[in-house]
Amino acid sequence: MQTLLGLFTCLVLVTTGNSLECEVCSALGTSCTGSTQTCEAGKDTCIITMSEHTLVGYTMQMIDKGCASSNVCKHGPKYMDFGQGKQLRSIVTCCVGEACRTAAPQLPLTITKPNGKRCPACYTSSPGACKDEETVACVGPQQSCLDLAVTVTYGTIVVNTAQKGCVSKSVCDDLRRNETNVFGVRSVVTKAECKAPLTQAVLGFLFFAVFLSRGTSLECEICTGIGSSCTGMMKSCDAGQDTCAVTFTEVSLAGTTTQSVVKNCEFSSVCNLPPTYMNVGQGQYVKSHIACCMGDDCKTAFPQFPPAMDKPNGKRCPACYSFFFGGCEAEMVDCVGIEDYCLDMVEKVTYGKFTINIIMKGCVSKPVCAAKVGEVTVAGAHSDITKAECTPASVAA
């Protein structure tokens, strides 16, 4: 049954036209032959869909030939990752007439480099078994989170499936509620949504936002953005907040480096804070700097990220960074520059319907130790720090 479920996940995403005739067939493997059929009105090309499914510990390939609307010819390869090694990739080749019989479509390349985004992940025939805290790291072109529900009927057997994970834009372009019937199995898509993923950058500036109190009649531009600039509405600051601030953050996690900017109202006491540095091991780090400004100067503020520091200062801390339950296995890392403290932090981030539990340990500069247990909401993501402890770093033997 898992084989059938994998097969239908891709089929429901492809639209399969007039006096055109196409060969129609489906089979496991890389080739199939079938009868030639006249296409329905609106379907103006023949297509060959090659797909590969890795589910429950094994991998299978499948080919499907049929009629389709030529708009599918513009779509790129499809990549889907449901976590726990369950993945699908496919590509559509358009052709006409005899060319379809001799075409040899190739599967899209395998992509493994993380892109810094994460999505809730689940692939099950028991929808209630999906847990929002289970996530998967997206790779390459996987820029969206899929939330798909499919009812599969095979004879007297009815299975309600839930599929969540990272997907490429091409999957979302074809996404719709519809019905298909292949090999006597009826598949009905009852839910089909693509959502924005949670990015490492959001987590990065969430981490530093907890240090900032969020003005008087002062007005400041309020915005957050990925990159080195953002624009937003002017807002009157709360009582006591007497300056505008621009916070620049650089996050390097899971092989991806992302910069972000936050503009808001602040207390002038933050203007004298030195840059913040955090080293969580394995080349992963977070660094941030706050620039204070007033009025139009904030709109033209140019990011000055803290300089990189690589000279060891003779101190060491246990370090790790994990999105998962059960803790993380810390390794000792050499602290550099002004990283004189060891941080041990646990944070729960809620973004939309899913929750990520983050554990962070590593060398940090003194300003990071201002982190306190508590809650804050930034850019629609709610951060709840349940543990925040700083201790002096040990001197390396």
Rank of each mutant, 00 (worst) to 15 (best):
L206C: 15
L206Q: 05
L206Y: 06
L206P: 07
F207V: 12
F208Q: 14
F208R: 10
F208W: 12
F208V: 12
F208C: 04
F208D: 08
A209D: 09
V210E: 08
F211M: 15
L212Q: 13
L212P: 08
S213A: 15
S213N: 12
S213V: 15
R214H: 02
R214P: 06
R214A: 10
R214E: 13
G215R: 00
T216H: 06
T216N: 11
T216V: 14
S217N: 14
S217A: 12
L218H: 04
L218R: 00
E219G: 05
C220G: 10
C220I: 05
C220P: 00
E221S: 01
E221N: 01
E221P: 02
I222S: 04
I222Y: 02
I222W: 11
G225C: 01
G225W: 01
G225M: 02
I226K: 01
I226N: 07
I226P: 07
G227L: 10
G227M: 10
G227R: 12
S228D: 09
S228C: 13
S228T: 15
S228F: 12
S229C: 11
S229L: 09
S229N: 06
S229A: 14
S229F: 09
S229D: 07
S229M: 14
C230G: 03
C230D: 03
C230H: 00
C230L: 04
T231R: 00
G232A: 06
M233K: 00
M233P: 01
K235H: 14
K235Y: 08
K235V: 11
S236D: 04
S236L: 05
C237R: 04
C237S: 04
C237M: 03
C237P: 13
C237N: 02
D238Q: 08
